[in-house]
Every structure is written in C-alpha cells, then in structure tokens.
Design a protein around this nucleic acid. Sequence first.
DNA 1: GGACTCATGCTTACAGCGTAAGCACAACCT
DNA 2: AGGTTGTGCTTACGCTGTAAGCATGAGTCC
Lengths: 231, 231
Amino acid sequence: MAVRRGVPKAGLSREKVLDAALDQIDAHGLPALSMRKLGAQLGVEAMSLYRHVPNKEALLDGLVDRVMETAFANLGEPAGDDWTSWLRTFAHSLRSALLAHPGVLPLVATRPVNSPDALRMSERWLAAMRAAGLPLGRALDVVNVIAMFTIGHTLAEVGQTPGHEGTEPDLDQRSGDLDPAEFPNLLEVIATRAGLDFDSRFAQAVDILITGYAGLTEVALDPGQQGAEGR
Amino acid sequence: MAVRRGVPKAGLSREKVLDAALDQIDAHGLPALSMRKLGAQLGVEAMSLYRHVPNKEALLDGLVDRVMETAFANLGEPAGDDWTSWLRTFAHSLRSALLAHPGVLPLVATRPVNSPDALRMSERWLAAMRAAGLPLGRALDVVNVIAMFTIGHTLAEVGQTPGHEGTEPDLDQRSGDLDPAEFPNLLEVIATRAGLDFDSRFAQAVDILITGYAGLTEVALDPGQQGAEGR
DNA sequence: GGACTCATGCTTACAGCGTAAGCACAACCT
DNA sequence: AGGTTGTGCTTACGCTGTAAGCATGAGTCC
C-alpha cells in the first residue's frame, strides 16, 4: 500500500503550486512567471517547487489542463438530444474559461490537452453526439472545429502581447497614422466600430458553424427524418 | 537625402537577420532561437544584431510580418465580384503560409500584425468586398473569422510543443493506455481515423463559414443584428 | 526506546539568456 | 585631412531553469 510518510513542512503541494502560478500569471502576465518568483510567492526557494513538479514545462501543462477543466466543469453532461445547443454552450463556456485567464491562453493554444478529465469528457461527448444521430467522424469534426475556432478567436480577442491589456483592438492607436485617402474603409471601421464587437461576432460565427454542420448531417441522411435543428 | 554612409563589414542587414532567424526556427524550433546562436549562424557576435533590430521582441514581430506577407503575396488582388471564392483562396493561402513555418505559428497567433503591407491588404479587401455588396461590418467579420479560425486550426494541426514534430495527432501514442470499455469511441476514432483528416476538415469548415455568411447577406438586408445597416 | 526510511525544503553552482555601455575601425563627405 | 557615421566586438550585469547534495523531521518497524 501507499503509506503516507513524511509530511510537508511548508504545506506545499502540486495543487498549491499550480494555484500560485495561475495567480502570478493573472496578476503579472505569462512572461513574468519564473520559478524563483513563484517560490517566493509561496514562501519557499525555487528548487523546492521541483519536489512537486518535474520542471517548468510540466507546470505549464498543468495550468492548461486546469483551465480546460474549468471549461468542462461549468458544462455538465450533455442532456436531451439537441446536440446543437450543447455545442453552443460548450463554445461559450470555453471562451469564458479562456478569457478568465488570458495569460494562459497562449499555452492552451500551443500545447496538447492531456488531462484524463479531458479525455473522459471527449469520450462522453462523442458518445452523446453519436446517440443524437451524428456519424462519429462528423461529431469529432464539429467539436474540434468549434474548439479551434474558439481558441483562435479568443487569442485575437485577448490581444496580442501577453501581460499587456489593450482592450481596444489596437487599430485605434494608429488611426492617426492612417492617410484618409489611402485607408477610407479602415478609418470608417474605426469610426463606426462596425465589425469590432467580439461578443456578437463570436456568437454569430459559432451559430453559422453549428447550423452549417447540422445542415450537412440532414442532407446526408434522408431528407425529412432528422428534422428541425434551427435556433 | 538619404546618403549611404558606412558600409556593412560582414554584410549584415535587417533582412538577413530575419532570414537567418527564420531558418533557425525552421530547423531547430522556436525555443532554440537565441540572439547568440543567431549571431553565430551569421558569423557575428550577438550584440551586432542589435544594430539591425531594436530587440528580440521586434525581431519576432518582424518574423510574423514576414510570414503574413508571404500569405498575401501568393494571393494577388481580389478579382471579379465573387467574394466567396476570394475568401476561400485566402483561407487556404494563409494556412499554407503558416504551415510552411510551423515554428513561427505561436508568434503569429500571439502578436498583432502591424506591417503596413497587411494594413494595405486589409484596406483593399474591405473595399473589394463592399463593392461586391457586403456591408462594411459584415465584411470585416467574415475576414476576421476566417483568419481566426485558420490560425486556431493550424495551431492544432501543427501540434503542440513547438520544435517537436509529432505528425500523428498524439492521441495514437496513448491508445495503449485507453481502457476499451471506458473509451470505445475514442478508440474507434483512432482505429478508423474518422475525423482526423486536417485537410478536408479545414476545407469543409471554411466552406461552411463562407456559405453561412453568404446566406446572412442574402436573407438579411435589414433584419440583421444590431449594427447591420446598409451603407 | 532506537534505528531506519524517506519526502521535504534549502543551499550552492552552472550554463545560458537578453541586453546596456563603451570601444575600434572603416567607409564616406566635405 | 578631418569629421562623421554606421558597424561589429568586448565586457559586464542581472536574470533564467535546473542539477547535485545536504539537513530536517515525521512516520514506521524492531
């Protein structure tokens, strides 16, 4: 049996390390995260962290898993057989989770999600969507496409340089540099803010994707069988 | 006038520095790029690079611009007034450009594109799409959504850890760990490879997005969401 | 009790990083 | 010629991730 020997001196643990790292990133941005500073925040030397995390890369992977798990946690089990509304919820829940920790987003975009929880979640979703009538391959396609789009969109939204706010789409800052004769449309965009609303743009694109895939599966089966999928 | 004074000793230039950096990243991955190694590859000390680039961040920005410019260069001017096919071409051209330099992709995803060329290109596209009948806001939406999706999809495609290949969707590597009773669908995915073809998935999703937006402009010349007013 | 095991956290040390500051030189202009 | 300027090198600083080894104290077993 696994006998519990030796007890923490400073109450450190993998979970606490991850929590602290997330705090640090939320507060000061991803580039400001170093093992020494992280240790300092926990009242501990940098090397002590290596008892709970094999290296910094693994720590970052852990952060990705953690953020993804919150996206799933707010989600629950897919209920009913209207997969289109599950997916919409999933997309928005994922975006919320990503926006809650913008500093981690580049990591999420860049490394695989390996957590067992995520695997279990994928399995359950695939099962549910098949049960709702989608072919396996198509089910995987929709989920992946929604996830990839959400990540791409949120990356653009959170904006560029990690650890730097810039709530405005940064086009504004150089609107002064733009020659009105050469860039009339860009200037009109800035002036009217047409097409600059991330919320509605995201919702609209997700709807388009979902109804598009729904249309695919309808036609592929016999017309009239699956019926209404609209919103 | 700009008088050319002082001539390079080792024939260095901003362009050559960017070229070398791109080579280095293509060959050994993004994390392996350091100013010292880059200098060494150019037969020069690290500090010499700072005569041509203000700092490493700016160098990375330059790489992003460069890759984006190749995407535009393979594209040409939008011709005719079928904006749907321009956009499809744009999406695939962007994906090719990104796939050509996978190591740069995390940078593209993470920092703004500031190059004047990109601005000019945006302006021209907006003008052309308006001329083809799209409201300004919608035109910007479609282009942005396509770009964001392409970046998100390609990020997932190129895979995770930068500087590491892994052509297989890395699910394979742990297929042995999966309990067939618990993960029947995931295992079927791995076995049949259903939904694992990046090329066709990307093409399909892009088509769905474009025809979705095309449908919007057809149907809704006035019942659009909040901002959709004609011109 | 005493001995042993072992997880924990600290200390020290090293190689590598980005880059600030200042110097030496070569090419050009006047 | 003298001055100016662009170029590249040298040195140095503070920071990074982490390898290696040690001290401590809690827990188990005799």
